[in-house]
Amino acid sequence: MTDNVIETCRLTKYYGAKAAVDQLSLTVPRGSVFAFLGRNGSGKTTTIRLLLGLETATRGTARVLGCDSQSLTPEMRNRIGYLTESHFAYGWMTIDECERFQSGGFRQWNRELFDAVIRHFGLARSSRVRHLSRGERAGVCLAMTLAPEPELLVLDDPALGLDPVARRALLEAILFVTRDERRTVFFSSHLLDDVERVADHIAILDGGVLRVLCPAEEFRRRVGAWIVRFEGPVPQLPPLAGLLGVTCLGNEMRVTVANELEAAEVALRSLSGVEIKSVPVGLDDAVVSYMDDRGRRRSLLQTIAGKTTSEPAGISPPDVGNLTPVRGLTPPGSPNE
């Protein structure tokens, strides 16, 4: 049996007629740093609330640490740390009181760790929460989430409102947690530079539907892009498996494709452009291809320019890695190609 700390099966949540989460089947391996990506409103927070049993699923199941999300016992909750999006803490409490209040709910509490995080954010125990900045309050919340040393850490957009120094502290905290390889961090984020630094697995949610689920490095390998330059006007692009997006500028066409890279290159070469070159795709490019509807709509710049292009209509981004199971972490030194 694979050791997954989170497993959902066709998890679905409707609000009225709208599916906020649509048949989500997600697996998060133990020991991973798992980045959960998607635009605002794509269903990330709803998914997290479903995982923690704070919402009831319309259909489907979710299991966390092997236990059904709908029936998490206090013992189970002791093993899960949850940092909410809003970084909530009571304004009238001092940091010291926050610690006493929060530690009462947990069986174990690492006071040194709490102290270290508070110091790292440059905070004094006697400060009152309502006098803190957003980033400082995030530091207090992070300290309260880390101190019980949970086996699974669920962070809902933890970097929201953090300055660069606090963001770095957050990343260091994530790495600190994974010193123990039995512990897992599951976090949602919009900051792809941070994701690239610390995440080893990614999932992309788009309109409540899971589009990508795989190791981060594999995701980058599976997305390719080419620029084809033509003598005259850009011709019509033939149907291409795995097409993520096309943008045309002057007599150049930039094509982004997932999965079917070899076939795409062959097809593009047959267009008889004067030059074709493969261009590197950064993690951010690859993720944005999935999230900004570029395939279905036009880029903002094209919309502004009112340009008509030869884009095929109605591209739906292909799923990456969805069909293959998420593999375990790669042991050091093993060939990865």
Binding site: V33, P331, P332
Partner: peptide, 10 residues
Amino acid sequence: LVVNPNTVAR
């Protein structure tokens, strides 16, 4: 470097 250990291992 503040990066995932798997990245360095790779």
